[in-house]
Design a protein around this nucleic acid. Structure first.
Lengths: 217, 217
DNA sequence: GTCTATAGCAGGATAGAC
DNA sequence: GTCTATCCTGCTATAGAC
């Protein structure tokens, strides 16, 4: 295995650079030439190590995206395990925190959400891959956790919609950073992210916080 | 102006087909050849009518996406005007309803959200265009409406985050249909969409509906 | 494993006839 | 306005030297 200065194999460098570029521009907007140049290796390397471009893309999800998603899941689990008292509030906060201020670096975070957002809007084989192996199990686990702290008799569908709604917000505030910034004029610095976590937690627990009003009759 | 069977000019047909294809596959995944073939016209037509591919893409947002977004905005406004009593509940419901069961056909809806989701995740000139002319004004109007029904003294940032959260959910439940379907196994038929509107309304008003729990100390 | 060289094709864009 | 024909660039993928 040949390694360069940073002591990374060509395969690793290709995966790293491919992920960055795919996340930034999308599959079709990125050429193999661009990737191999960024990875400081030869044009033929992609075909040698991964067979073709599509396979490199899939491998990015297999060997980069999925493990990171599992790290996030672990982070949520650990946050909850550290709580003396398990509650819905703790759970929502743990999720929001993991996804916005969690173990991922700023750049990792952005990449992570851009990659999956693209796949959600227009799924390829990569989506099947991570949905089956990562997302669905994680989703089940969260559903089980939430079920245990919600009033009995809540329908399964309602339970799932609740989780999806929380995810929807978290995902939105991540992938649509540019739009959010445009609309409210805030940079995504540490302070703003902390306020976002607080907001998502509050909103998930109490909505707008004014309760449901009676319909006039 | 030359028209074909459907009595549409070549320009119109190009815009129609371009929108469908760009929404479905994204800018780079669609070729001019594919568009002109779908529009049943010559390869050179794109360059003749729009100068180049990029300009056709922008024109799709200008002449198709933006007017439709305004239609949605009008729909919300009319729904609210028809209410005898203006309330936060009515407002949230009007938004959710407009975006999920509103004036757009099934296909129009899908296209609409796929186009803007792509732009939010990776903005181009098209985003600037619709952000300035359509999204920001609509957002302001909604913010003003919500401000009038929220408790006084709510910070502007909180107000905006509330609206963005509602949008986040609505957008998510639209563009991530495939993911939602994967996770909870529901098709997006009329009945499910109605339940979604109900859910989004409830969630926005009361969150999980169990109130904020006290931190144990 | 990594390189160069190149095959083979699809892409956007244009020129010029009609 | 619409067509055909064509230019030229850039793409993925492969063959074969090292």
């Amino acid at each position: 295995m040949a390694r360069n200065d940073q002591n990374h194999t060509t395969q690793e460098r290709l995966l790293n650079e491919a992920e960055i570029l795919f996340a930034e521009k999308g599959y079709h907007a990125v050429s193999v030439r661009e990737i191999t140049k960024a990875a400081d290796c030869n044009l033929a390397a992609v075909n040698y190590h991964f067979g073709n471009k599509q396979n490199l893309y899939l491998e990015v999800f297999r060997s980069r995206w999925a493990p990171r998603a599992r790290r996030l899941q672990e982070h949520v689990k650990n946050s909850l395990a550290a709580q003396s008292h398990f509650s819905a509030a703790a759970m929502v906060k743990a999720i929001a925190q993991a996804f916005l201020e969690g173990p991922l670096s700023e750049d990792e975070q952005l990449r992570h959400y851009q990659l999956i957002t693209r796949e959600m809007a227009h799924p390829t084989e990569a989506f099947e891959l991570v949905a089956k192996d990562v997302m669905r199990p994680a989703f089940r686990e969260l559903a089980d956790g939430l079920r245990s702290v919600m009033p009995e008799g809540m329908s399964e569908e309602r339970l799932m919609l609740n989780i999806l709604s929380i995810f929807g917000m978290v995902l939105y505030f991540n992938f649509a950073r540019v739009a959010v910034t445009h609309m409210i004029g805030c940079q995504y610095d540490q302070a703003f992210k902390a306020r976002l976590v607080e907001h998502i937690t509050d909103f998930s627990l109490t909505g707008l916080g004014i309760g449901k009003e009676e319909e006039p009759r």
